[in-house]
C-alpha cells in the first residue's frame, strides 16, 4: 500500500480520477430528470476528458504540451455549449413550464 502511495500522483492515478468522474457523469446523464442536471452531468464528463488530456500532456508530451492546448479548446467549446443549452432550455421552459426530462420523452421507437 505504501509502495503504491509513494508512486502517487502518477499518470495512472490521474487517469483513474478521470475515469471515475466520467462514469459518474454518464450515470447522471442517464438518470437525471431535471434538464439542468443533465447539462451539469455533461460538464462533468467534459472535465473528466480535460483531466485525461492534462495528465497525458505533462506525463507523455511534456515538452510540447499539446494536451494543454486541447484542454483550452475543450473549455472554450464547453462554455459555448452551455450557453446555447441554457438558451434552448429557457425557450422550451416558456412553452412548457417544466424541466422534467420524462415529460419531454416521447420517443416512440
Amino acid at each position: 500500500m505504501s509502495d503504491f502511495l509513494a508512486t502517487l500522483p502518477s499518470l495512472q492515478a490521474y487517469l483513474l480520477v478521470a475515469a471515475m468522474l466520467f462514469c459518474i457523469g454518464v450515470w447522471g446523464l442517464i438518470n437525471s430528470r431535471n434538464a439542468v442536471r443533465v447539462l451539469m452531468s455533461i460538464e462533468l464528463m467534459l472535465n473528466a476528458v480535460n483531466i485525461n488530456l492534462m495528465a497525458f500532456s505533462s506525463f507523455v508530451d511534456g515538452d510540447l504540451i499539446r494536451g494543454q492546448v486541447f484542454a483550452v479548446f475543450v473549455i472554450t467549446v464547453a462554455a459555448a455549449e452551455a450557453a446555447v443549452g441554457l438558451a434552448i432550455l429557457l425557450s422550451l421552459y416558456r412553452n412548457r413550464v417544466t424541466v422534467d426530462m420524462e415529460q419531454f420523452n416521447l420517443l416512440r421507437w
Binding site: 434538464a35 464528463m45 488530456l53 499539446r66 446555447v84 422550451l92
Partner: peptide
Amino acid sequence: ALKYLLVGSAAAAVFLYGSSLLYG
C-alpha cells in the same frame, strides 16, 4: 433542440474521451 443538444453533447464528450486516449 433540447434533445439534440443533450444527446449531441454527450456524444461529443464520448468522442473527446476517445481522442484523449488516442493522444495519450
